[in-house]
Design a protein around this nucleic acid. Structure first.
Lengths: 109, 109
DNA sequence: CTGCATCCTTCGCGATACTG
DNA sequence: CAGTATCGCGAAGGATGCAG
């Protein structure tokens, strides 16, 4: 829509916004992403780092984030089972911007 | 919190995250902020730019965003009434980061 | 260990009618 | 014009128990 060359303020794109909101909104979603950061964590480790989250919610959020392409799930055929979660390539690309949201939060302390 | 000099990966701060989420989560909140951007808009203009939003929700979101300190409300004692909304200083400071969320959305198209 | 099924409560959001 | 009041539904999230 840059029909006007001196128009520097681009209209917000509702579709892109909703895409972004889908992966960060909710009580735990963004926190899980930032927590993962560059590391790989197992299901149990995540549940310990997210005190108060219920099993149902944690499993659901992880599944949703994997479906969104933000993170990868790797299950090992062992006994007992072991499952590891890490950010996908795209997830790591988004990480710097998502981290800056904390600075936004700081602004409004 | 940089007690450890070689600690470059900062733990996510749940409090700051929640502060940030409070102002962008929800179906309309972030979109309203980005829409406002640098301009000043009246109540009716906003409702036209947000097709489908109900009166109750729009009024509620505006009130909430003002309470959060993201935007300012200015009412003129005229007849008929006129009320203008614009981002606060802090809101404008946060704007660049919030705009980048659209790039995150683009990543996951 | 990992995670799904069930039940229940709360909250976000929409529709509509009404007011200063 | 700029909202508030009321009603209602569906989704989000918590508690608990069960399963591979």
């Amino acid at each position: 829509m840059p029909t006007n060359p001196n128009e520097q303020s681009k209209n917000p794109d509702l579709r892109l916004i909703n895409k972004a909101l889908a992966m960060i909104c909710g009580k735990w979603r963004l926190y899980i992403i930032l927590l993962l950061g560059e590391q790989t964590l197992r299901y149990t480790q995540l549940s310990e780092l997210l005190p108060g989250i219920s099993e149902k919610v944690l499993a659901g959020e992880l599944k949703a984030l994997v479906a969104l392409g933000v993170m990868k799930r790797k299950a090992y055929a062992e006994m007992p089972p072991r499952v590891e979660y890490k950010l996908s390539k795209k997830g790591r690309l988004a990480l710097p911007i998502l981290n800056q949201l904390q600075e936004v939060g700081q602004l409004f302390n």
